[in-house]
Each structure stands twice: as C-alpha cells, then as structure tokens.
C-alpha cells in the first residue's frame, strides 16, 4: 500500500496540524519519560545510600563522581593521573583489536586460499574459540610481563572470533559472483582482491564491532590481575581499599570509552555503507 507516498497534501487542514502536534507530543513524551527514569535512578542512587537504606560502602553517590574525577586528575594511585590510566586502557584495546583484525583477516584469507589447511586447523580453531581466554591472564603475566600480557590478552580474546567470523564471511560470498570472475579468467588472487574482500566489508565491520568490546574486556580483566596502570587496575584497586568513589568513577569512564568506540565504529559503518 502506498498510503504515505500518494498522500494528498493538505497542510492547512486542522486535522493535519492536529496530527503533527500529537505526533510531536508522543515523541516528547517518550523522551521525557526516558530522562525521568534516568533522573529517578540517579536520585535513588544518591538518596538510598544517604538514608542508609542500602549500604553506601558499596555504591558511593553520583554526586561524588565529578569531585572524585577532579581529585584523580592530580593525586592518584601509582602517581598517574586518571587520564593516563584511561589512555593506557584505550591504547591497549586499540592495539589489541587492530592486531586481531589484521592477523585474523590474513589467517582467514590463507584458510580460504588453502581449503585443506582449513580442514586441518578447523577443530583447533573451534576449540580455541570455545576456551575462556580470560583464564590465561595469569599465565600471560608470567610469560609476557605486566605490559605485554595486557596487549597479548587484548589480542588473544578477539583473534579467534575474528578468524572464524571473517572466514565464514568469505564462505558466504555468492559462488555465482566467483564463477563470473572465473569466466573472465580471473586468478585466485584477483578473485580474493576484487570479489571476496570487497564483498566481505559488512562482515569486517560486524567483526570490528564485536572485537572492540571483546578487546576492552580483555584489557580490563588483564589489568585487574597484573597491571599498575589502567582503568581495570583503578577498579580493582578501589574495590580492594573499599573506595567506591574510585570504582564508580572508573566504571563511568569505561562506559564512556566503550560508547565512544561503539559510536566511532557505527560512524565508520555508515560512511563505508554509503559508498557502496
């Protein structure tokens, strides 16, 4: 039905104005309610501990977030400002998932190229993917030391997902497109470069989205264990000395960091998809 596009415009009609108003009112209602819910949550978080209904030791207060942030800018554990803690986490995450993307895509392309190798490695990949990578944090620490172990965890946690996702993306390219390229006499390398890789851009971006989150988790868990820098370290440190202000501030920054990364990838997705 093409009700909308064959609409006869009656911009002056009172019904239309009425409808527009109601529509706007509905949207405003939803937005206002969303804000109200947020406000109520914040107020509850502020008031309940103050009234000793829940234990403030566990929750801190939202009003403490900003002062704690300011305080952490100067006087902080490990003589590092909260900004360098944040930077350290971000850098480890980006390095980890960038490395995982490059390495994973290369390996996936190799497996695509050489099917027998894929068949040989398939069980190993599935097993590696099913293993809880975070369990390796202590052993990575022993092998790689404080800093490298975090990069290593960031890479390890997203590498196998990357290989499997991108490989299955390669597999799902329409075989007729490959046949078409072959009928033009394309070599395998040309098929990979001109058909398979460009056709897999949506898969690559979907993988990127998954990996950014995974790598951040890998970094934070690594920092819980073995770091003396980073937001994960701040969270662990704060909860050990029962300073919930620090924990909550670090968690908030972490949430912001992860949202920004997610938005950045979504933006990238929009740009790439518009070009297609």
């Amino acid at each position: 039905m093409s009700k909308a596009n064959s609409a006869t415009l009656a911009s002056a009609s009172p019904q239309y104005r009425n409808w527009l108003q109601r529509n706007r009112r509905d949207q405003i209602f939803v937005r206002v309610t969303q804000l109200a819910v947020l406000l109520v949550l914040l107020i509850l978080w502020e008031v309940l501990p103050k009234a000793q209904i829940i234990n403030p030791l566990f929750t801190s207060y939202p009003s403490m977030l900003w002062p704690t942030f300011l305080e952490l800018l100067t006087a902080t554990p490990q003589q590092a400002s909260i900004l360098s803690h944040t930077l350290s986490t971000v850098v480890a995450t980006v390095i980890g998932f960038a490395a995982a993307m490059v390495l994973g895509t290369t390996i996936a392309a190799t497996l695509w190229w050489w099917n027998s190798l894929y068949k040989v490695l398939d069980p190993y990949l599935v097993v590696a993917n099913a293993m809880p990578k975070t369990a390796f944090v202590p052993i990575f620490y022993i092998w790689l030391g404080a800093t490298l172990s975090i990069y290593g965890m960031s890479l390890a946690i997203s590498l196998f997902v990357t290989i499997l996702m991108i490989y299955s993306g390669f597999q799902s390219i329409d075989p007729n497109k490959i046949k078409l390229a072959q009928s033009f006499g394309a070599s395998k390398g040309q098929i990979l470069r001109k058909v398979v890789l460009p056709g897999s851009v949506p898969t690559l971006i979907a993988t990127l989205k998954v990996n950014a989150g995974l790598s951040l988790v890998g970094v934070v868990v690594g920092e819980f264990q073995s770091a003396n820098l980073g937001l994960g370290y701040l969270i662990q440190y704060g909860s050990q000395i029962f300073k919930m202000n620090i924990v909550m501030t670090a968690v908030t920054i972490l949430a912001i960091v992860s949202s920004v990364m997610y938005l950045a990838i979504s933006w990238l997705e929009a740009v790439v998809m518009r070009r297609r």
Binding site: T33, V37, L216, I235, G238, S239, V251, A255, Y262
Partner: peptide, 26 residues
C-alpha cells in the same frame, strides 16, 4: 520498549566484567 531500550543499550555498552569487583563486594 522505547523508554527502556536506551538503558538496555547503555548497559550493553558498559563492559560488565568491569563491574565484577563491585559485584563480588556486594
């Protein structure tokens, strides 16, 4: 759904494992 959804997405974007120390405390 419209009211609750942004909170779910917000929750999704927080690395929940970062809350682990807190959950253990509680």
């Amino acid at each position: 759904a419209a009211i609750v959804q942004p909170y779910i997405i917000c929750l999704e974007s927080i690395p929940k494992l970062a809350l682990a120390p807190l959950i253990i405390l509680v």
